[in-house]
Design a protein around this nucleic acid. Structure first.
Lengths: 349, 349
DNA sequence: CTTGGCACTCCGAAGCTGGCAGTGCCAACC
DNA sequence: GGTTGGCACTGCCAGCTTCGGAGTGCCAAG
C-alpha cells in the first residue's frame, strides 16, 4: 500500500491545509497565513515547527529560504489518498453533463464530448481515446469496392465502436468477392475477439487449404491490408482544453513542448495505456508524470477506463497541473466513466 | 482589382525590404538597418524620406516615435500580391511530403496528415476540413442494425469521403428492412448529389405513396434520423500545430483565446467556408482575420480547396501570425492541394 | 533628389533601494 | 514536552532612477 502520510493528527491537518491553500492561491504558503485560516487558534510558531518536520519527511519544499512552503509530489499523493472518495458532483454539474450527452448513441461521438466536458470541468485538458481493438468482440464487418485495388472496410464491434478505413489491396477484388468474404467472417466469427479472429484465419488458411482456397486467400489478403487492424496509432484520440494550460504555465518553452506532446496522439495513447488499468473500474490518479514524459513535470493524470457492458471501449482522463481541484476532477472522471455504460449499453439483440 | 502598391520603383523595393526584414527579425526596422542591407548604397536619410511617404500612404506604422517602422496589413497585402507566384518547394520538401502521403488512400487520413504537414512546414497551425456534404455526389450507402432503434449508417461519396454514424430511429428496423432501403437508394440515386437525393425522396414520398408506401416511409424515417446528413457541425476538422503559436504570442490572455477559438470546430469551419472559394482552385491569402474573428487580430489565413476529380472534398489552410514565411506557406498549401487530386483520384470504375 | 548633421524622443536594460513575507532559533510559559 | 511570543536574519520583488542606444524629423548643403 502507498504511504499513509505523516503520523500525527495535527501534522496531517496542517499538511492538508497547506495543499489546499496552495491549490487555491498558487503561492508558497507561510505559517502566518495558515494560522489565521485555521479555526482552532494555533500560533504561527507552532505551525513553523510542524512545517519543519513535514519538510524533513519530504512533504514540503521551499523554493528558497524565507519563502513559504510548497507541497511536494508526495504531499499531493497523501492529499489525494486522504480525500473521502465519497464526494459527489453538484446537481447542476450532473444535470449539465447528462444534458450534454443526451441522445448520443455513437461511441466516438461520446468520446469526443467526453474530452470536451472534462476540459470544461477541470483546469486541465480532457482526453478520451477509443480502446485498442484486439481485445474487443467483433459484431460484424462490411466490405465494399471503391475503385481498383481500393476497398472500404467497416468493422463494427460489439461495444458499438465503428471503425472505417480505406484499404489498398494487392489484388483487385470484385464487389461479389468482398461480400462473400464479409459473409464468411460474419457467419463464423461474430462475437469473437478480433485477435482471435486473426489467429483463426491464419489457422484455417494453413489447414483447410484445399477447400476454402480462393475465399480464404482473399480474406487473408484483406486482413493483411489492415481490414481488421486498427493498430494502436490509428485509434481515435480526442484532446480538448489545451487553452486551460496556458494559464498555469509561465515558461514558454515548456508550454510549447507540452502542446507538442499532446498533439502526438501516440504519446497520449501510451500515457493512458501505461496508467489506466482497463481491467478494473477505479479512477486512477497519477501524480508526477515526468517519469513517463519528461515534459510533463508537475503534471497529473486522473484517468479511468470506459466500459460498455463487459467490453472496454476506451479510456478517459484529465491531464492537468498538480495544482488543480482534485476532488472535482476525480468525481467528474468517475461520473462520466459510469455514464458510458449507462447511456450506451442498450444491447437488446 | 486589389491595390497595386506604392507607385515609385524605389518605394516598392524599400517596402518589400521592410516587410522581409520585419518577417525575419520581428523587430521594427529602422532606416540604418535597411541602408546597410541594401546592395545599392542608399543613405539612411533617403530611406527615411521614403519611409515617411510610405507611412503617409498607410503602408507603415510606428509603435511610437523613435522606433522603427512596422508593416501594416496593407503592406502585407501588397507584399503577397507582389510575390512572383512561380516559387516552388525545394526538392527536399516535395520529397518529404510525397513520402509522408505515401500509400494513403483514405480521404480523412489524407486530411489529417495534411494538417500535420502544414503545421510542420509553416509557423502557424495546419488546418484541414472535409467538405460539407450536400453538394457531393453519392456513391452508395450501407445500413446495419446495431440494437433496438439503433442503426449504423455509412455514407460513401464519389469523392471517396466516408462518413459513418449511429442513428437512433423512432421505429425499430429489421436488418432486412435496412438492406432493402439501402438497395433502393443505391439503385436509384448513385451519382446524385446528396441534396438532390433528399429532395427526390421527399417528392416520391408525396407522389407515389400507394406503391412504395412501407419502403419509402422507412427511408424517410432513416433520413430524418440523419442518415444522409453530415450537417455542417459534424464535419471532420483537423487542426494541428497549435504549439507553433506559443512562440509568436507574448500576451497570455490572447493566446488562450486563440487556442480556445481553434478548438471550436464550428468556428474553424466557418472561417474556411468564408474565405476559401471551393469553385476555384486558387490559393487564397487573407490578411487580417480580425473581421471574422476578433481574437485573430494580426493573423493570416492561407487556404485552398481540395479537389478530387470534379468533387470538392474539403479545404486546407495555414492559419498563422502575419509574420510568417508567406512564399513557403503558399507554395506548400498549393502543392498539397494539388496532391489531393494526384494521389486520391484513381477512379477506374 | 540625395546626403550628412544635429537635436530630440523614447524605450529598455542595469543598478539600486526599501519593504515585506517568511524562516529559525531561543527563552519563557503552561 | 508541547506551545508561544520575540527577535534577528534572509532573500525576493517592485518601484525608482539613470543612462545609453536606436531611431526619427528636419534642415541646409551638395
Amino acid at each position: 500500500m502507498a504511504q499513509v502520510g505523516p503520523s500525527g493528527k495535527r501534522e496531517r491537518e496542517i499538511l492538508t491545509a497547506i495543499v489546499e491553500t496552495f491549490i487555491a492561491t498558487g503561492e508558497p504558503v507561510g505559517s502566518r497565513t495558515l494560522s489565521r485560516a485555521s479555526k482552532e487558534r494555533i500560533s504561527p510558531a507552532t505551525i513553523r515547527n510542524v512545517m519543519a518536520d513535514l519538510a524533513d519527511a519530504g512533504y514540503l519544499e521551499q523554493p528558497h529560504t524565507s519563502a513559504g512552503r510548497v507541497p511536494s509530489a508526495q504531499a499531493y499523493r497523501y492529499y489525494v489518498e486522504q480525500l473521502t472518495g465519497h464526494a459527489h458532483l453538484s446537481q447542476a454539474d450532473e444535470g449539465a453533463i447528462q444534458q450534454y450527452f443526451h441522445g448520443v448513441g455513437d461511441v466516438q461521438e461520446f468520446m469526443e464530448r467526453t474530452s470536451h466536458v472534462l476540459s470544461l470541468l477541470s483546469s486541465g485538458v480532457g482526453v478520451a481515446v477509443t480502446a485498442t481493438g484486439p481485445r474487443n468482440a467483433l459484431d460484424h464487418v462490411y466490405f465494399s469496392r471503391l475503385a481498383a485495388n481500393k476497398v472500404l472496410a467497416v468493422v463494427v464491434a460489439r461495444s458499438g465502436l465503428v471503425r472505417d478505413r480505406v484499404l489498398r489491396t494487392a489484388c483487385d477484388f470484385s464487389q461479389l468477392e468482398l461480400e462473400t468474404a464479409a459473409r464468411y467472417i460474419n457467419e463464423n466469427f461474430r462475437g469473437w475477439t478480433i485477435d482471435a479472429v486473426r489467429a483463426e484465419i491464419d489457422r484455417r488458411l494453413q489447414s483447410e487449404r484445399s477447400e476454402y482456397d480462393r475465399l480464404m486467400q482473399s480474406i487473408e489478403e484483406l486482413q493483411r491490408s489492415g481490414a481488421l487492424g486498427p493498430e494502436p496509432a490509428a485509434q481515435a484520440v480526442f484532446v480538448e482544453g489545451v487553452a486551460n494550460l496556458v494559464a498555469g504555465e509561465e515558461d514558454k518553452e515548456r508550454l510549447r513542448e507540452l502542446l507538442r506532446t499532446l498533439e502526438e496522439k501516440e504519446r497520449v495513447v501510451e500515457l493512458l495505456a501505461a496508467y489506466v488499468d482497463a481491467r478494473q473500474e477505479a479512477v486512477r490518479v497519477v501524480i508526477g508524470l515526468e517519469e513517463a514524459v519528461p515534459q510533463m513535470r508537475n503534471f497529473v493524470l486522473i484517468g479511468a477506463p470506459a466500459h460498455v457492458g463487459d467490453e472496454v471501449v476506451g479510456s478517459l482522463a484529465v491531464i492537468g497541473p498538480t495544482r488543480m481541484d482534485y476532488e472535482h476532477s476525480i468525481t467528474a472522471v468517475s461520473y462520466i466513466a459510469q455514464l458510458f455504460d449507462k447511456i450506451l449499453n442498450e444491447k437488446e439483440y
